[in-house]
Each structure stands twice: as structure tokens, then as C-alpha cells.
Simulated scan of single mutants.
Amino acid sequence: MATLFTKIIDGEIPGRFVWSDDVCVAFLTIEPLTDGHAMVVPRAELEQWTDADEQTWAHLQRVARIVAQAQQEEWAAPRIGMLLEGFLVPHLHVHVWPAFSADDFDPHAPMQDVPAERFDEAARRLRERLVAEGHGAHVPDA
């Protein structure tokens, strides 16, 4: 049975994509810790990071870093948070988000009632930053 993330990747459920390649995608989470909070998700349904082969794991880390650097530039964040997940959705995903203080690292306290327009704006900004940094080939709608 396909995971929630596979359904998003396959377009069955909408997602705000900021990256797409043959190995993975990145899209904004619907429960962000800060604006621009994205998840890097392998296309393959891997339940946890230890299930990923070395090449896939290295690729996910590389893309997470590229997205994180774009987030840091776009939101002028002093730090970037990163968290490996796979409990609520049994599909490996790497969270990356602009972090401004230790308070931003509380996965149990996401921003509440975020309007769709705010998500759309964050996705637009992150896509534009990725394009400006030379990654347009992997940015959907670029």
C-alpha cells in the first residue's frame, strides 16, 4: 500500500514541491516549524534511513543541504534545523527548516492555522532562491 508521501509524489494528493529529481523530491510540510520548512523524501518507499543504500542516503543529504542553504539565505536564518523522521508516516523523510532560536526545534509545536497563501508564498520564495543558486533543472515550475 502506498504511503502518504508516495501519494503526494505521484500527484494523488497536492504538495508544494520545491525540488524534484529521479531519486527524491522536496516539498513543504503542512505542519511547519517555521516558514519554508521542507521535507526531502526519497521516491522509493523506504521506511527508515537505515533502509536506504549508501548512494540514496548520500543523495538525500546532498539535496537536504542544498535546500537548507537556500532556506538560510532566503529567510536570513542563523541556523538550519534538520530532523530524520519516519514514525507518523512510515516513509523516510528529512525535515529541514530555517531556525532562529532553540524554540524552533520543537516538533510537537508546529505553527498553527497557517493560511494557504503563506505556504504558497514560502514555496515560491524557496523555488526562486533555488533557481537563483543554479538548481533550476530540479525546481518544479521553474
Rank of each mutant, 00 (worst) to 15 (best):
S20W: 09
P78Y: 01
R127V: 08
T56V: 13
F17I: 10
A137T: 05
V139M: 13
A99C: 11
A102Y: 02
F5S: 01
P78M: 01
A109M: 09
H135S: 08
R16T: 01
A122V: 11
L83W: 03
R79W: 10
A137N: 07
A44Y: 00
H95V: 02
K7P: 00
A137I: 11
R62V: 01
F87Q: 11
W97T: 04
I13N: 01
D35V: 03
I30L: 14
E121F: 05
F17P: 05
V40L: 08
D104G: 03
F100K: 01
D10I: 04
L92A: 10
W75P: 07
W19S: 12
P107W: 12
F87I: 15
H138F: 15
I8H: 00
A38L: 09
A68P: 06
T50Y: 15
E47D: 15
R118Y: 06
A132V: 09
T34S: 15
A122N: 11
I30A: 07
D103V: 05
M39Y: 07
F100R: 06
T34M: 08
A142E: 13
G86V: 12
V139I: 14
D53G: 13
D113V: 04
Q72R: 14
D35W: 13
T6N: 04
F5I: 05
A142Y: 09
A58Q: 13
A142F: 11
Q71N: 13
H135R: 09
G15H: 04
F100D: 03
D120R: 13
A116T: 13
A99D: 00
V18E: 13
A122M: 11
D21N: 11
F87A: 03
A68N: 03
R125W: 11
I8P: 02
R79F: 02
V94I: 03
A64Q: 10
Q112M: 15
V23F: 11
D53I: 11
A26C: 12
A2H: 02
H37C: 07
R79I: 01
L130V: 09
R65K: 06
D22S: 14
V40E: 06
T3R: 03
Q112H: 13
D21R: 10
E31H: 03
M82L: 12
D103I: 00
W97Y: 15
A70H: 06
Q71L: 14
Q72C: 01
G134D: 12
V94D: 04
M1R: 10
F5V: 01
D21G: 09
E117H: 10
D53R: 14
L60E: 00
R43F: 09
Q72F: 00
G136I: 08
W19G: 05
L60H: 05
S101R: 06
